[in-house]
Amino acid sequence: MSNLIEVKDVKKIYNQGKSNELIVLKDIDVKIKKEEMIILFGPSGSGKSTLLHIIGCLDRPTSGKVFIEGRDVSRLSDDELALVRKDKIGFVFQQFNLIGALTALENVELPMRISGMKREKSRKRAKELLKSVDLGERLNHFPRQLSGGEMQRVAVARALANEPDIILADEPTGNLDSKTGEEIVNLMVKLNKKGYTLVIVTHDRTIAKYASRKLNIKDGKIWRR
């Protein structure tokens, strides 16, 4: 079976050639198959978030290649990368990153609206997604009226809006207490069972036990598989 994601000899160097040069990733090779649930862990500053951003097409490697479904995305333009993010990738962040001026429903609709989906259709789908994360009663609440766990569930619903292949999560439980954190973990596991491929940066041990693989990143390198 071919790889959904393939990271090949990826280096990421900030301020290359200058006195403040910073090597964040060196020679990373990772292959991720469909329906895997990968955990990235390691000390802070190890480069795990940077790797997640590169896989998520938010960033480009300094050298090396990244393939998503066999397509090399490492040298795409800003707008081409944005299109890959829109169609293939859903993000979940530690800070939830919802838009405060929009309701839960509108936040979930936003990626579909960016895709140019018709309004009735996007509204209907957003409602279904929010129901599926048990927020059917909170559609018209603004983020400030929601608890942390609720906000993160809205964020998960938003990540699913454009039916992505890959869910990328950066410390999704990092800002939640252990109980609500567990709800999010269960949600992630459920998504994985439904067939989504997940890559999660986390220190959370409860997630770790469900992972198909754990990658330990330290000093910009993967240490064990």
Binding site: G56, L58, D78, D79, A82, L83, R85, K86, D87, F91, N97, L98, I99, G100, L110, P111, I114, S115, R158, A161, N162
Partner: peptide
Amino acid sequence: RREIGIMKSIGATNRF
């Protein structure tokens, strides 16, 4: 700024 970053992360192009 942050909101614009979010929009981009969920697929908004520069042009958008």
